[in-house]
Design a protein around this nucleic acid. Structure first.
Lengths: 240, 240
DNA sequence: ACCTGAACACCGTTCAAGT
DNA sequence: ACCTGAACACCGTTCAAGT
């Protein structure tokens, strides 16, 4: 990150009225526009051309700020985690497990409505400072449980893996039909439920056992249910 | 899946010497070739053209078997899970938690060496039968713990989310430099470790606390460490 | 029923040139 | 230092035609 020039960081030109013969951006404005497109239309629709058009400039100008599409996604994902970090930065010295729960839920809330995020979050800590800081923050709460370094490492990774995995799974990039708007998300879910109900009960006893729970379930409750299992295991390890 | 014709399923023409003026495929051969390319070169390199070339035919023939690139990836991922399913199908009626551990570790082993898998596994149970069956199998073990349907649903989702999240995170699609071969995976990891060691110890106490564990750590140990926390929590819930 | 080559409408990225 | 338009080398997908 620090290896690239970062215009707009503390520069004099921050947004004043200029001659305006050419478009003028900054890393932040590029990332903000990228996140906006991502949130509105998903990763598939974030093309360099679409981004340039939204910024009102030419395609090549984007490459002044990022090395390519991959880094653009990495930085866009990291900028969202920056918001999470800000929200939990002053988490305080209450019960560490409670703090972990708070951090995890905040992350979940940020990721679940952004199907595109899962694949790019915490991918490269060299580029993604906020990701690194968030990982550190989670680790610091785990450290307070006074486990061995190895246990701390495993526990921190587990929390991060669980959050990202579950949130990414739940907020998955929906199928083309939903993206294109020819089918609503509700219709899609209703279809999935119907398909499950139609399964042979003898071959799929579990599916039938939980189908009523699945139908109309709340993703957040589901996430917290699993998270609490993990945190219970962690608490037990710490108390031993 | 059953909505599409499946040539080669139980058909008479299974691979006999033919006139051979044209290439001839089957869903299985198409998926096998796709998985081979995926394993060798990653998702980015699996182009329809590369796949057709490997099959020795034209591009358009692929579209006879799959509706597009997305479904190709879905089915390729599901075919790998088919192998996992086969390996654990006769898991037996031993301790359910032990069984869950076995299934999870088998899944982990299959996913971790396939960075491309994480993003496509368990995405659409309408297309991915093996994924559905594996989900069912995990759920059946959880059912034996005799929790409420809601608890069962949450626990099953948690196990699946943890496995996929952690494995996907660990086996991430490596950066371009590694894919293209200009940098080895070891060099990349060594670089990451060095970068972490260089961080300010006052601002990153956790990173420094675990850096020796991170350096040269075994992904599998790390996965199992986290998994056991989750399963401990689950066992406790079941015993209550 | 299954395969083909060519064509279409895109992409990400680069580059020489501008300001 | 930052932006531009045009060009390059690709893509996924479709289609009319073949066998």
């Amino acid at each position: 990150m620090a290896t690239r020039p970062q215009p707009g960081d503390a520069s004099s030109r921050s947004r004043g009225p200029r001659t305006r013969s050419r478009a003028s951006h900054s890393l932040e404005s590029v990332l903000a526009a990228a996140v906006a497109i991502l949130d509105e239309s998903g990763a598939q629709r974030l093309t360099i051309r679409a981004l340039a058009a939204r910024l009102g400039g030419g395609v090549a100008s984007v490459y002044w700020y990022v090395s390519g599409r991959d880094e653009l996604l990495d930085l866009a994902a990291d900028s969202v985690l920056g918001g999470v970090l800000e929200a939990v930065a002053d988490i305080g010295d209450g019960d560490p497990i409670d703090n972990l729960r708070t951090i995890a839920v905040t992350m979940f809330d940020a990721i679940v409505d952004r199907p595109w995020l899962g694949a790019y979050v915490l991918r490269d800590t060299a580029t993604q400072i906020h990701s690194l800081q968030l990982y550190e923050l989670i680790g610091e709460q785990v450290m307070r449980l006074e486990l061995t370094p190895r246990q701390s490492f495993h526990a921190t990774s587990a929390v991060v893996g669980f959050v990202i995995g579950t949130a990414a799974d739940m907020g998955q990039e929906p199928p083309e039909a939903v993206v294109s708007g020819e089918m609503s998300k509700e219709e899609y879910m209703a279809g999935a439920t119907a398909q499950w109900r139609a399964l042979d009960a003898a071959r799929f006893p579990y599916i039938h056992h939980i189908i009523d729970e699945f139908d109309g379930h709340d993703d957040r409750d589901q996430f917290i249910g699993g998270l609490d299992l993990l945190l219970t295991g962690l608490r037990l390890q710490a108390e031993r």
